[in-house]
Design a binder for these strands. Structure first.
Lengths: 343, 343
DNA sequence: CAAATTTCTTTACGCGCGTAAATTTTTGTC
DNA sequence: GACAAAAATTTACGCGCGTAAAGAAATTTG
């Protein structure tokens, strides 16, 4: 970390006693040069603290080592967490993650895709907004950049989809609730932002039918990504309208459940599986905060790690293969039931 | 959006009938060319959908239009939110935000700073980790890049600090709690990650002395950024040890309070300002989730907008001024008390 | 130890754009 | 309509690096 300042690869090459093209080769793949050469370069490296200019490196390359990671909402700890996992995996693979959040807005999602295109990424991991996505914009993007979708699927767009198996989520929660008490009503947004919500409702209906119970879907109004408030407001409205009579409620996702729990608390209702409770509440996602709700939330957890690892792995296969996968892959991981106090 | 593909500015200039240097000038500042010229360029622009190559644009420039935004923990909705606000303001100013989260790790924070340096940003908005920050690394960085610190101060580092006035936070909550009931005990982490926590404890001690009450600080163990769990665990431990006897608790921050509320719930304690409650709980930050705790959390809110706006404004003054501000500015914004149900 | 192979060096060009200098064209003023 | 000022054009070079080609040097093989 000492010595005079190195301004470019030319000077660094001179300082290390290696030719510039060889140094360039080293930076593109350290293993591509002879051991003795690598040692000399690395010795010079921590003597002079030089790093290739990132812009010069990329401008004359068709593809960079950038990997885009786009999530619909970075303020949602759920997505922040999975973005972090992806980031870590991408770095480990020697690439450079660029994390972008769409803030729940179609325009921002499109902006993010445009930004990424100008970054010439080698590939992109995209969790689309879902219903609010500009399908044609996303499709156009995917035609130009190898893209793996995750979390939320858009049919036939992207080279692959890696996500969680909503049926597995709902089957487990419904089975558990039915086995241990009253069959659940299903609590959801009428116009969910995300296609997973629809799959979960259908899975609920199917599971209830299989079990021989009458389904009961409570759909609450609300737009946008403020799920907690939508759940809270919707719960009050449903109680007021008399449409929420069940003593067993399965929420479409944890954030709605957090709002529902808040509303129940406000109404003085006791939630839990313990005797003397007014109702049981379960949900899906295992949101980072669901451990800290009152009561703690029984939910079905994503296999975060598997989804992240598989998404990254699939993307790199795509990139290295050069060509798109022959057929669009869709990989779904099952849920893991997490029993806590709410049900 | 039609027409043949444009490969570079040369071709685009030809297509629009303007010379390349003038087009270049346009992209650097649309107002720097004659109106009639701008119109022609913009006409061509949406006919051919051309964007200058971002790498070529930046490599031969001492400074880019990039603005780095670094927060200690992107999975914390609090930071995600403020990052979003900053992002929006930076875009509005015609710059290009690059948001990076440090995931609570010193190494990651240093990595982020290194990444930013290679991006040659015009300036950086940095919320440092605090105690865990590598001060000398941050200082070195700040010597090379115009940097405005926010949220968490490090003495004499960066060209300015914009934050919230911890004294105002604590004074308001303490005053409120004293006025409406028992004087509060103060609940905090023994080794907080963030310097604000120390300031809040001192402010609590001062406020209690002024009011003529005996202070009572409950410091719980725990390292890292899992504040909710630290708060929950610490609450149980404190109750078990008999060190938590107060009926009025002021938490250092909302995330600790969320954990404390969870623990109280688990112990069957009723929290709130209503008659019949076992204890009151208030806190600081107005975390996005504090609206949805059970009961909803009385807290002191940051003036998010003012902090974000001032931080961005200060940074741009710095950038445009060319030279560092004569004296390091420290600007603090007062809190706003948010009364909810917990106290 | 000579031949075959791998690795490195030298040389040279190009990427897409910023930018400076000199020149020409356009615009505004009287 | 002549003239000055403003703006656009032409020309030319450079940024820092990737990369190809050809030859020299080092390494491995038999």
């Amino acid at each position: 970390m000492s010595g005079q300042k190195i301004r470019n690869m030319e000077e660094f090459a001179a300082a290390s006693g290696i030719s510039r093209p060889t140094v360039s080769k080293y930076f593109n793949d350290p293993d591509s040069v002879r051991d003795s050469t690598r040692v000399r370069i690395e010795a010079a490296l921590d003597q002079y603290d030089y790093r290739p200019n990132i812009y010069a490196v990329n401008q004359n390359r068709r593809l960079t080592k950038n990997i885009g990671i786009v999530v619909p909402f970075l303020s949602d700890p759920f997505f922040a967490e999975i973005a972090r996992k992806l980031e870590t995996l991408v770095i480990a693979a020697g690439f450079r993650p660029v994390v972008l959040g769409s803030h729940g807005g179609t325009e921002q999602e499109n902006d993010n895709l445009e930004t990424l295109r100008s970054l010439k990424p080698a590939g992109v991991l995209l969790a689309p907004l879902g219903r609010a996505s500009d399908k044609s914009a996303v499709e156009t993007f995917c035609r130009h950049v190898p893209t793996v979708l995750f979390d939320s699927n858009i049919e036939d767009i992207g080279e692959a989809f890696i996500g969680s198996d909503n049926i597995s989520f709902v089957d487990q929660t419904v089975e558990y609730l039915c086995r241990t008490g009253e069959p659940p009503s299903f609590f959801e947004m009428r116009t969910p932002a995300n296609p997973n919500a629809n799959k979960r409702r259908l899975a609920y209906l199917a599971a209830m039918e299989r079990a021989g119970h009458a389904p009961d879907v409570i759909s609450v109004e609300g737009e946008g990504w403020g799920f907690e408030e939508i759940g809270r407001r919707g719960t009050h409205d449903a109680f007021d309208a008399g449409s929420l009579t069940s003593r067993s409620i399965l929420c479409s996702n944890d954030r709605l459940a957090i709002g529902l729990l808040a509303a129940c608390y406000e109404r003085g209702l006791k939630v839990g599986r313990a005797k003397g409770s007014d109702l049981r509440v379960a949900s899906h996602d295992d949101h980072p905060f669901s451990r800290f709700t009152c009561p703690s939330l029984t939910t079905a957890a994503h296999d975060y790690d598997a989804v992240a690892e598989q998404a990254v792995k699939t993307l790199f296969e795509l990139i290295e293969g050069g060509r798109p996968l022959s057929d669009r892959k869709e990989l779904l991981y099952p849920a893991r039931l997490v029993l806590r106090d709410s049900a």
